[in-house]
Computed example of a mutant assay.
Amino acid sequence: MRNANKMTLLGAMLMTAVSAQAFNVKGTIVDKTTKEPLIGATIQIEGTTTGAITDIDGRFELSNLKGNNCTLVIQYVSYQSQRITINAGQKEELVIALAPDTQTMEEVTITARKNLENERTLQLERQRSSVAIENLGAKEMSVKGISNVEEGVKKITGVSIASAGQIIVRGLGDRYSTTTLNGLPIASPNPDNKLIPLNLFPTSTVKNITVSKVYEANAFADYSGAHIDIGTKEQTGEDFFSISFNTGGKFNTLGREMYRMDHDGTLFKTPSLNSQLREMSLTDFEDYARKNTLFNTSFDVSKKNA
C-alpha cells in the first residue's frame, strides 16, 4: 500500500514538472493565393499581451510559453484573421496561410468645385490656359472698391472705356468686340452698339470677368478686339445680407482756401420745394418768391479753409 502511494505521488510530480516546462512556437505567415510571405503580420496569444511580428521573410517565433497549449490570433491588414490552438508537444514549424479579405464597396462619387472668385485660383487658370487671357475675380473687385463690371474691365491691361461707355481694346472700337454671359451670347439693348452696357452688372452678382484678346475654339469668331465673358455667382439657396459704405478724398485740398455756398440740408438729406407751391398759378408763385425763401437758403458765398 505504501509503495502504491509512493508511485502515485511520483507520477503526480512528474506530470507537474512536464506541465510546467516552457515551450516555443515558430512559423511562417504567407498569402494563401500567391504563397508570398507577409511582412508585419501580428501573432498574439489570445487573452494576453504576448505576441510577435513577422520579419522580412514572414517568419515569427514565440519563446517561453507556459501551459499545455495556447491559442494564437493571427492578423494582417486586408486579410482574414485566424485562430489556431497549439499544443506544448508540437515540434514542427507552422505554415499559416491567410486569405485576402475581399469586400465590395458601394459606388462613391466625389464632387469638387474650383473657387473662381479667388485671385490665386484665377492666376492658375491664366497659367494653364492655352490662349492669352486676363481675368478678375470677385474678391479682387471687392478689395479695389469696384461696383460694376465696367469699372472692373478698366482695370484689365489693354482695355479702356470711352466717354460714351464704349469699350476700346488696343485701339479697336465697340464693333470689334463681343460679350457673353456665362459663355452664352447676349444681345445689346442699343441698336447702334454691339456690346451691352457693362455697368448694368453689379459686382455683387459677378463671380469673375475673363477677357480674351485672341480667337478661341469655344467662342464665336465674330470679334477681333476682345471677347469679354461675365461669370455670375451660383445660387447656394442660403439667405445672406451684406452692406458696405465707401468714402474718399484728396489730401492736396487740406489747408487750402475754399468757397462754399449757403445751403439747407446735409450729405444724406437735400431740400425740396413745398408741394403747395406747385399748385399755385405763375403770378401767385412769382409774388410768393419775392417775399419768401423757397429753399431755406440765401445762396450767400463764404470763404473758409478745408
Rank of each mutant, 00 (worst) to 15 (best):
G67H: 05
Y223Q: 01
T205H: 05
I209E: 03
V95I: 10
V131D: 12
F23H: 04
V153Q: 02
F245T: 00
I133P: 05
A88K: 15
V169E: 07
T205A: 14
G171Q: 12
G225S: 13
A187S: 06
D284L: 09
V159Y: 07
T42D: 09
I168D: 13
T247D: 04
N135D: 12
K139Y: 14
A88I: 08
L38M: 03
K6G: 04
F201T: 08
F251K: 09
I146V: 12
A221L: 08
D174R: 05
Y79G: 02
G249V: 06
I29R: 02
K91S: 14
M141H: 06
G58I: 07
F241D: 06
K269I: 12
D284V: 00
D229P: 10
Y76V: 04
E107I: 04
A4Y: 05
I168T: 13
D229S: 08
I56R: 05
E286S: 11
P100H: 08
S177L: 13
E107M: 06
Q123M: 08
L9I: 11
P37L: 02
G47Y: 05
V159P: 03
R278N: 14
K269L: 11
E117G: 14
L181Q: 08
G40R: 04
R128I: 10
G249T: 08
P202A: 02
L136F: 14
D287W: 02
A289W: 10
P100L: 11
T236L: 15
P185D: 13
T16M: 13
T179F: 14
T210M: 15
N87E: 15
E134M: 11
F201A: 08
T121P: 02
Q44A: 12
A52P: 09
V108G: 02
V18F: 14
L195D: 07
T180V: 14
E279Q: 10
T54G: 05
K139Q: 14
A132H: 00
K291I: 15
N64E: 13
V30M: 01
P197K: 07
S142E: 12
D192Q: 03
S272F: 06
S242Q: 09
S302D: 02
I161G: 05
E119Y: 09
D101M: 05
A226H: 02
E234H: 01
T104A: 04
G265L: 09
F241S: 11
R113S: 07
E140H: 04
I228L: 13
Y223N: 01
K154I: 11
D55H: 03
I161Q: 15
E61S: 03
L181M: 14
S244P: 00
I29A: 02
G40V: 07
L267N: 04
V73K: 13
L198T: 06
N24I: 01
S160L: 08
K139G: 06
R260F: 15
D239K: 15
G237A: 10
R120F: 15
S204C: 00
T85M: 12
D239I: 01
L136A: 03
E117V: 06
L72V: 00
A12R: 07
G40L: 07
N3A: 15
E36Q: 09
K154E: 07
V159H: 06
N246F: 15
K155W: 02
V169M: 02
K139A: 14
S129N: 15
A17P: 01
T205M: 15
